[in-house]
Simulated scan of single mutants.
Amino acid sequence: MWGTWSGESAAFFAFAALMLGGAGVMLSLKRIVHMVLAMAAVFLGLAGMFVLLEAEFVALVQVLIYAGAVSILMVFGIMMTGRKALEQAPPRRLHEAASGGVALLLFAVLFYAIRSTELPEPGGRPAAADNTLAIGQQLYTAHVIAFELISVLLTVAFIGAIVIARKEA
């Protein structure tokens, strides 16, 4: 494995480093807006992983929804909440230690499950065709009403959240 080095391997390790680095930086930062930017880097690295898996549509959705909309929504939510309540929170050492222990336990369980699972040999099924066109055709023909209703519902919910936040301020 280590003897053959390809562009795909280099891209995998670059995206993995971006994701792990972004997650580590996010946990070490103190300002919430900077944390959201680090989380956006993790989302972009995950989108790159989806591109390596030849799931271009999922990668595009990952960038549009998570790296874009969720990050912006979090920034708006942070801007509308009280900063003093966030800055005056006491340190929670017991919670941090318990979270670290649970994370290590989860890692051990996943590591054991992955190492003990026997995977089938590759080549059993044909390569998937590009289905982005089929998804788009279904979304904008058979499911266009549901698509538009969801967009209106999300817009109304966002406006309602702004109105509620402004009344409390």
Rank of each mutant, 00 (worst) to 15 (best):
G24E: 00
G24C: 00
V25Q: 02
S28T: 15
L29P: 02
K30V: 06
K30H: 09
K30T: 09
R31F: 02
R31C: 02
R31T: 07
I32F: 09
I32V: 12
I32G: 05
I32W: 08
V33G: 14
V33W: 13
V33Q: 14
V33F: 14
V33P: 13
H34P: 00
H34T: 00
H34I: 00
M35F: 13
L37W: 15
L37E: 15
A38I: 06
A40V: 11
A40H: 02
V42D: 00
L44K: 03
L44Q: 03
G45K: 06
L46K: 02
L46F: 08
G48R: 10
M49V: 14
M49L: 14
V51Y: 03
V51A: 07
L53S: 10
A55H: 12
A55P: 03
E56L: 12
F57I: 05
F57M: 10
V58Q: 04
A59F: 01
L60Q: 09
V61P: 01
V63D: 07
V63Y: 03
I65Y: 15
Y66Q: 06
Y66M: 06
A67I: 10
A69C: 09
A69Q: 08
V70H: 05
V70E: 06
S71G: 12
I72M: 11
I72F: 13
L73Q: 03
M74S: 15
M74Q: 14
M74A: 15
V75F: 12
F76S: 07
F76P: 02
G77K: 01
G77F: 05
I78H: 05
M79P: 01
M79W: 05
M79G: 04
M79C: 03
M80N: 10
M80T: 14
M80Q: 13
M80I: 13
G82M: 07
G82W: 06
R83G: 12
R83V: 09
R83C: 04
R83D: 02
A85G: 11
L86P: 01
Q88N: 13
Q88V: 15
P90T: 11
P91N: 07
P91Q: 09
R92K: 08
